[in-house]
Structure formats: structure tokens, C-alpha cells
Design a protein around this nucleic acid. Structure first.
Lengths: 342, 342
DNA sequence: TTGAAAGCGCTAACAC
DNA sequence: GTGTTAGCGCTTTCAA
């Protein structure tokens, strides 16, 4: 069913049909009615490729997903929620989300995917998630002149549109809470420092400790790949130190679950002998034992904001107009508490 | 950079360039060399829309994701792994995965998405996941004549290509294990019965119990939405029965985590007072307390098989040639054990 | 071995 | 208010 056959069935020219279909106002109301009715009856749907070729627009927002952890997951829980939000915001706009996975093969693979997408004209805009401190994807998009929104900030001189959560504030808050409980040896189980969010978290943590007059101990800041397993291993190593930490701030809930498992195995009662905090407030956090004190990270809502930003850009807004720091808040539960002094 | 400007730069005709680029054999070797070199130098990339328009093929495999649980997740852990596998199999084939979310708005929304995709010619093949007993998506794809692979089986008279895990075998195995432990009141926390996988699991469960001479008690078979929360609520309700179950077979690990939380809250020691089993062997299963006895479900590998099936179909294989039941196997851990008789 | 030309389905000038 | 026409960038006959 092409527009040509539709036109023939209506005894109209192709252009009149096209105009009626695309809501131009120089079409007789009666004609428009007839066209719309016939299109529905004949189940006409414009060919995406043809429209794309002539308009230059694909109506697609492309995102490649890092899956840094294992290479065996398309995306993880957080991105799952984020994309649901983006998808929800895009819904009804005529734009859709084109998701491809870099399959854990790193930033080079991601760059290749984006480059293809851009050069083959397969997307109108890009979504860049989990930004690096110095992110080549951002540079690529800027050079190509394709609209993009980042989830997470990066270092660049040019204006760009971003949404981020208050990573620095979140970890200052977390550290502050543990300091208030009397903890002085507070570990930070961070993500890889190549990611900007990890640097920001570290900064928040550093600031809170420094403000409280607690000396920074580099041995207490470790990096892992955000998996349960890494949380477990890192905690085990930290507990082996001569003077182990009494509090553990984890970059994601998953790492906290690993930390809990490690402490349990060591015979430590989490929430009493040691304090553990997560970040994200994933569904499991309220069902594990002990329930996990964490920082609520509204991924779905964040995604919705990202989607709205994308739409603004696509609507012609200049990059750099958008820069929104999502607030985070504490969800106190049972996995942390006052330092017990023996 | 269009093929026209490439041709001009080479002083060749468009068609010769096209042939050289597409590996036709009626091109002089020297000409091909020149074209390829120039294309690389000029960073030429064929326009996807144009190629699509003329060839009729988009090189896209579309999948819409149900996110039935909450509507707030693009996909869940299982699909995350499955798609990673599909994506891996497709990698290098020239086909890519186009994922859109139905945003938890049910099968009607999914049907609308697929219908659009088909009618606008936006995909060469479809991937249909989490099949219903009587699945309208399968009928739609069959009527449209578009190649598709289902992950999960369905009821249809026509041949189709599917990959499924051995749901029936898995739950027969699980029930058999609990029967062996002496349990007689074994609950099944199933998924919604509209899904074929839920029916198959029920069948496996029924068969195992019947074979052991244990009467089926409908009160022990309940349905939930596969979330942690639903596992928790259903278990609470089951424990409130006059004669509560001593073993709980859960449709997914998440439900099992909810079940563990519920039992803990009731003061029951999981693995001693009650037996709990999950399904999927998610990362958390080996880190929770007690560690979860579950059924390994190799989602990534399954996804790879699905992707390979898709490629076979796209390569011209007739539907119905593919029908593969993935084996599953038990991962015994600490959450289940012999019935304690007081 | 290469080039000219038609046409995929659509939009948007431009004429009437 | 409607029709004619020229492309968008590519593949693929058909001639040369």
C-alpha cells in the first residue's frame, strides 16, 4: 500500500493525498476527510525509508549501551529504568528509541557504532549514557553536529545538554551520615575513575570527610565494576587491612549486596558491627537482610527528563540550554548505624 | 558524502562505484581498488534510508519489550541478558536490533508497535518474547509474512521458528527435588497463566506431584507478576493458610527473594523450616542469605541461539525449521532441604 | 568493463 | 484547492 495506490483509489493526485495526510491547511476539508477515511480503510502506512530519504530525518534517537560489567547483559537495572523513562517521554512524539549494545567491548566499539549511526544518517539524535571524564562520544557528536543529550556530565568547552544526578551531593550526604554515626574509617567502593560520576562521588566523599576534619586515607577508596561480585571482593580486601573500615559506601546497591555477603561471611553483623550504604534504591534494597540504607535515584524519572530534553533539542533548541541536576535523597534502613566502640 | 560525489571525485559513473562497493565481480580490480581507497579516504558511508528504499530491506530486527511488571522498566534482568545474546549473534551480520518498549501498557500497545513496524516496513524480522498461550503477535507476523523467531512457544497451527527453555522439565525437576526431601505441601508461585511458560511450568509441577502420588491442591498454586514484591505478598498469603506449604517453587529468582524475605519476617529459617527454590540463577542468587537453590537458565546463550535463528530465517530458511528446547539444570544451594518433622 | 537511466515511496516547490 | 514535477541516494537492469 503506497501513497500512489491510495491516490489512485481516491482519484486524487499523490501530492493532494500527501498534503491531506500531513495536515497541510490548503486541502479542502471534504477531501481531507475522504483521504483519511480511505487511508484508514486501506490500512495505509507511509514507508519509513521513503519519508526518511526525502526528509533527511529518521525519527530515531539512538543509544548504545555499555554493559561494561560483564558483556553478557544488554543493559543493567539502572539503564533499564532510564530507558523506560526515555521511551515514555518519547512516546507519542513520533520519535522512537533505537538501542544497540556495545556488548561490553568497550568505548571503541561504542564509538564505531555511533560513527556508523551518524554517517549512515540513521538517527536524528543521540543519547549518551555513563559519561567519561573526557568522553570521545561527546566530541564525535559535537563534531558531527548531531543533537545529543548526555546522562551524566563530562569535560568539554562547548555547550551541551545534560541531565545528571547529584552524585557529589549524594556521596557527601552518605559520608556525612556515617560521620554522624561516629565512623571515621569510611570506605568508598567506587566505580571506575574514568567515569565522571565516580570522580564526582569521590569529590563529595572527600569534601565531607575533610569538612569533618577526618584525614583522607587512599587505602579506603577502591574501584570496582559495579557488580555484586566486585562489591564482595573489594569488601573482602578491605576487611583484610590492618585497620579495616567500619563503614562502606557503595557506588550501587549491587555492590552493597556483595559487601553485605562479605561481611556476613566474616561474621560481622551488618548494621551493628559495620555500616553499609548503597546507591540507587533498587527493588531488592527493601527485601534483603538487613534492609539496605541507600540513596534514592529516580531512574525512571531521570529518563523521562532525558527524553524531554531530547525532544526539546529535536524541536530546535540550542544545545547547552539544558543542564539539570536531579536531586537525590536518603532512604534510611537497617544496614547502617552508630559505630560501636568496644 | 553521497555516492554521486564519490563518483565525481573518481571520475567514474555512479553505477560503477556502486558495483565496486557492493563486491560485484564485473568491476576491474584496479577500479575497485581505487573506489575502495577513495571511499575510505572520503569517509563514505551509504545512506541507510536510500539503500533501504531501493532494496526494501532495513537490516533491522525489531523487538518490543513487555516490561509487564511495573511499566517503569524498559526490560528486566532476563531480557537484558537475552538481548545481549541476540545482539552478540547479530553482530557482524549487518543486522541490528531495534528495541522499543511497550512501557508496561500491555499486549495491545505491543501489537500497535509491531503493526507499525511491519506496515511502515521498518524491520526485516521480528523477535517475539514472552509468548502468550494464544499470541496475537505471532498471528500478526504470520499474516504479514514477516520472518520472526519467538522466545517461548505458543499455540498455532502454522509452522514457526522458536527457541524455548525446558520450562516443563525445569519445574518437574524442582518439584521432584522437593518431593525427594519429603515435602508434600509444595507451593508453586507461578507467572500469569496467560503466558505459555507459566502453563508449561504448571504442567511439569503437576506431573511430578502426580507421579509421586501427591494430590494436587489448587490452593498451593498462585500467580504473581514476577517481581520481588509479588513473591513476598504471595508467600505471606500462603503462610496464612491453615495448612501452609513447606516448600515454595518460584517462577523467577526475584520472587524467591521476596519469598525469603516473607519467611524471614515470619521467623522461619529458610533452608531448614521451609524450602525455597528460584529459577534463572541471577547474580544475586549466590550472594543472598541463604544462597538460593535455583535452576540455571542461560539467558545469554539462549539469546545467541535466538539471534542465530533470526539470521537463518533472514538467510531464506523456511519457518518451522527451528525449534529448540534449551536444557536447564539445577544449581543446588542452601535455600532448600529436607522436611523437618516435629 | 563501464555508463545511462529507471525507479523505490515520499515531500515540497511551483504552476494552474 | 489541486496537480505536475523534481528530486532525496541508492541499486539494478539494459546498452554500449
Amino acid at each position: 500500500m503506497s501513497i500512489a495506490s491510495l491516490a489512485k483509489a481516491l482519484n486524487l493526485s499523490i501530492s493532494t493525498v500527501s498534503r491531506a495526510l500531513n495536515n497541510y491547511d490548503d486541502v479542502a476539508p471534504e477531501t481531507r476527510r475522504r483521504v483519511l477515511a480511505k487511508a484508514k480503510a486501506l490500512n495505509y502506512r507511509p514507508n519509513a525509508a521513503a519519508r526518511q530519504l526525502v526528509s533527511g530525518s529518521t525519527r530515531a534517537v539512538a543509544v548504545t549501551l555499555p554493559a561494561v560489567e560483564t558483556g553478557e547483559e544488554f543493559i543493567d537495572w539502572m539503564y533499564s529504568g532510564l530507558l523506560a523513562g526515555v521511551s515514555a517521554a518519547l512516546d507519542g512524539s513520533g520519535y522512537y528509541l533505537l538501542a544497540t549494545s556495545a556488548g561490553g567491548r568497550g568505548i571503541d566499539r561504542e564509538m564505531a557504532l555511533y560513527r556508523n549511526l551518524i554517517e549512515a544518517n540513521s538517527a536524528d539524535a543521540l543519547l549518551i549514557v555513563r559519561t567519561l571524564v573526557d568522553d570521545p562520544r561527546v566530541k564525535l557528536a559535537q563534531e558531527a553536529g548531531i543533537p545529543f543529550v548526555t546522562y551524566g556530565r563530562t569535560q568539554t568547552d562547548l555547550p551541551y545538554s545534560w541531565i545528571d544526578t547529584d552524585n557529589e551531593g549524594a556521596f557527601a550526604l552518605a559520608a556525612h551520615r556515617q560521620l554522624g554515626f561516629g565512623h571515621r574509617r569510611i570506605a568508598l567502593l567506587n566505580g571506575p575513575s574514568a567515569y565522571y560520576f565516580a570522580q564526582l562521588r569521590r569529590r563529595g566523599y572527600d569534601k565531607a570527610l575533610t569538612a569533618a576534619g577526618v584525614a583522607l586515607d587512599p587505602a579506603l577508596v577502591v574501584e570496582g565494576n559495579l557488580s555484586i561480585q566486585s562489591g564482595y571482593s573489594l569488601t573482602m580486601e578491605l576487611l583484610n587491612q590492618k585497620s579495616p573500615p567500619t563503614a562502606f559506601l557503595c557506588a550501587v546497591d549491587n555492590m552493597a549486596f556483595g559487601a553485605i555477603a562479605a561481611c556476613r561471611q566474616r561474621g560481622l553483623v551488618v548494621g551493628r558491627d559495620v555500616s553499609i550504604m548503597g546507591y540507587s534504591n533498587s527493588p531488592m534494597a527493601s527485601f534483603c537482610d538487613p534492609t539496605l540504607t541507600t540513596i534514592e535515584h529516580k531512574v525512571f524519572e531521570n529518563g523521562r527528563h532525558v527524553g524531554e530534553g531530547l525532544l526539546r533539542l529535536l524541536g530546535g533548541e540550542a544545545p547547552g540550554q539544558l543542564g539539570y541536576l536531579e536531586p537525590v535523597h536518603l532512604v534510611p534502613r537497617a544496614s547502617d548505624g552508630p559505630l560501636v566502640t568496644s
